[in-house]
């Protein structure tokens, strides 16, 4: 069980690195516009053309 003394800090540090990445994204404005990116994704591919009958 004494592995706990090593594993817990490591786990928290790993989580903290993900938190740091998240903070980096927030401070660089990646969460400012939540409206356009999800829509832009839909328009990346050329639309499928339906044939006129």
């Amino acid at each position: 069980m004494s592995v706990l003394y090593v594993a817990l800090p490591i786990a928290i540090l790993m989580g903290a690195s993900a938190l740091a990445a998240c903070l980096y994204c927030i401070h660089h404005g990646q969460f400012d516009d939540m409206d356009t990116p999800p829509l832009r994704m839909l328009n990346e591919d050329p639309p499928v053309r339906t044939r006129r009958q």
Binding site: A16, L19, I26, H27, G29, D32
Partner: peptide
């Protein structure tokens, strides 16, 4: 407003973690 929003969001991320 943007700056305040970012600050709040960052705090929420930390508090959540």
């Amino acid at each position: 407003l943007d700056r305040e929003g970012r600050r709040l969001l960052a705090h929420i991320a930390m508090a959540g973690f």
